[in-house]
């Protein structure tokens, strides 16, 4: 997707920050020791430029992730087309703990991309774009 279109549908800084602050669930993704990407839905709590995610892991693979490892958190919401928005946060684990079978990671944000489909609701716009084409 052309960069201009990505910019057109990206959230502004304040909107993005508010969106992430209000996202109680995110898909958290990591790569396991065998090289397979793994994703699951996690509870999320953002504070400053860090996100704490908490989740149970029936695969047993999350135990292989520790401080310094790369993870990705994806938030998305919306029930109407022009309300759909989301963010993809790539970062690294700065703290990891496990209790009662649940993993709790703190993730420092390193790169964030976002999208807001409200920009696509106008039929006179330059057409549909997928914000994920980054």
């Amino acid at each position: 997707m052309p960069a201009e279109r990505r910019r057109r549908i990206a959230m502004g800084a304040e909107q993005l920050s508010a969106f992430l602050d209000g996202s109680a669930e995110m898909v958290v993704a990591y790569v396991d020791t065998a090289g397979w990407p793994v994703g699951t839905l996690a509870g999320a709590d953002r504070h400053g430029e860090e996100i704490t995610v908490e989740f149970a892991d029936p695969t047993g693979t999350a135990a292989g992730v520790g401080v310094g490892d790369a993870v990705c958190c994806v938030a998305e919401e919306g029930t109407r087309y022009d309300e759909i928005r989301g963010a993809i946060v790539r970062g690294e684990v700065t703290a990891a703990a496990t209790a009662d079978g649940r993993h709790r990671w703190t993730v420092r944000e390193r790169h964030t991309s976002s999208f807001d489909f409200a920009a696509l609701a106008d039929p006179e716009s330059s057409g549909p774009v997928s914000p994920r084409e980054t």
Binding site: V27, A29, Y30, V31, P37, V38, G39, A70, V71, C72, C73, V74, E76, G86, I88, R90, R132
Partner: peptide
């Protein structure tokens, strides 16, 4: 490419 995960809503 850096070996890290990337997630995309689809």
């Amino acid at each position: 490419a850096d070996g890290g995960p990337i997630g995309y809503p689809m």
